[in-house]
C-alpha cells in the first residue's frame, strides 16, 4: 500500500524555541490516524507543519508542494471554531468550492462531491439553510468536516475535532471520520479522547514534548505500560 504522507526530519522552531523536534514518519493511504499526547506536546504544530501551514525545516511530501497542489491534496478542519459572520451553512461550503474551482487540476476530479453530498455524508443535510451561529458545537464540527470534504482532497487533517463536544456528539464525529477513512480518505486527527477513539482509529501516533515517541494500534498504545510512558513518565522512550 502506498503512503499518503511521508515526513523527513520535519521540525518547527518558533522564536528560537524548538516546538517540534525533527520527525520522520509515514502514514498509509486510507488510514485513520489519531495523534495523541498531552497539551503542549506539539500535536497541532506537527499537523500544521505537515500540511505546510506554518514555517518549518525539513518537510513532508505535502509541505514541499506548491500552494495550489497542496489544496488539491489535503484539507484542514481547524480547532478554532469561532465564526464571526453569521453566514448560511451551504454558503460556507460554497466559498470553498468557488475557490478550489480556480485551481488548475480541479477538473480532473472523477467523483465530485457537492455541498449537498458533503452535508449528507456528515449527517447535516437538514442544516443546509441554517445560520452557522445557530449551530451546536457538534453540528458545527460536522459542518466544518463537510467543508473539508467539498475541497475534494484525499487527506483530511483535523485539529481536535472532539474538543468541547458531548459524548454523543463525539461518537457521531468519530463515526463520520471512520466512514470517510473506509471510503479511502486518509484521516489525521489530534485528540484527547483516547479511550473513546480506540475503536475508531487504525493507528495512534503518540507525542511528548515536541517529539513522536511511539506509534501503534490504539490497543498497543493504551496498554498500561505504554500509556505511562507517554503520559506519566519523564524522558522515557517507548
Amino acid at each position: 500500500m502506498s503512503h499518503a504522507i511521508i515526513t523527513s526530519d520535519i521540525s518547527v522552531q518558533i522564536q528560537g524555541k524548538t516546538i517540534l523536534h525533527p520527525t520522520s514518519i509515514s502514514i498509509k493511504k486510507g488510514e485513520n490516524v489519531g495523534i495523541i499526547g498531552r497539551n503542549g506536546a506539539g500535536k497541532s504544530t506537527f499537523m500544521k507543519a505537515m500540511l505546510g501551514l506554518i514555517a518549518h525545516s525539513g518537510g513532508s511530501n505535502l509541505s514541499s508542494k506548491t500552494l495550489s497542489d497542496r489544496v488539491r491534496l489535503a484539507s484542514w478542519v481547524p480547532q478554532d471554531r469561532e465564526l464571526v459572520w453569521d453566514i448560511k451553512v451551504e454558503t460556507l461550503l460554497q466559498f470553498t468550492i468557488e475557490k478550489v474551482k480556480e485551481t488548475e487540476n480541479f477538473k480532473a476530479i472523477k467523483k465530485f462531491i457537492d455541498t449537498k453530498d458533503a452535508l449528507s455524508i456528515t449527517g447535516t443535510l437538514k442544516l443546509a439553510n441554517a445560520r452557522i451561529k445557530s449551530l451546536s458545537g457538534g453540528e458545527l464540527t460536522s459542518v466544518l468536516i463537510a467543508r473539508a470534504l467539498v475541497q475534494q482532497t484525499s487527506i483530511i487533517f483535523l485539529d481536535e475535532p472532539l474538543a468541547s463536544l458531548d459524548p454523543i456528539q463525539k461518537r457521531t464525529i468519530l463515526e463520520v471520520l471512520q466512514e470517510m477513512s473506509q471510503s479511502g480518505k486518509t484521516i489525521i486527527s489530534s485528540l484527547h479522547d483516547i479511550e473513546l477513539g480506540k475503536e475508531y482509529f487504525s493507528k495512534y501516533i503518540a507525542m511528548r514534548e515536541g517529539s513522536v515517541i511511539c506509534e501503534g494500534t490504539p490497543l498497543q498504545i493504551l496498554k498500561k505500560k505504554q500509556f505511562d510512558k507517554i503520559f506519566v513518565e519523564k524522558n522515557s522512550v517507548c
Binding site: 500552494l67 489544496v71 484542514w76 481547524p78 469561532e82 459572520w85 470553498t96 468557488e98 480556480e102 466544518l144
Partner: peptide
C-alpha cells in the same frame, strides 16, 4: 473580495484552501 469569504474560517483554513 473572494479571499475574505474564505478568511471567515480563519487564516489557517483559508490558507489550506489556497488563499495566499
Amino acid at each position: 473580495a473572494s479571499d475574505l469569504n474564505l478568511l471567515s474560517l480563519g487564516e489557517e483554513t483559508a490558507s489550506s484552501t489556497g488563499v495566499n
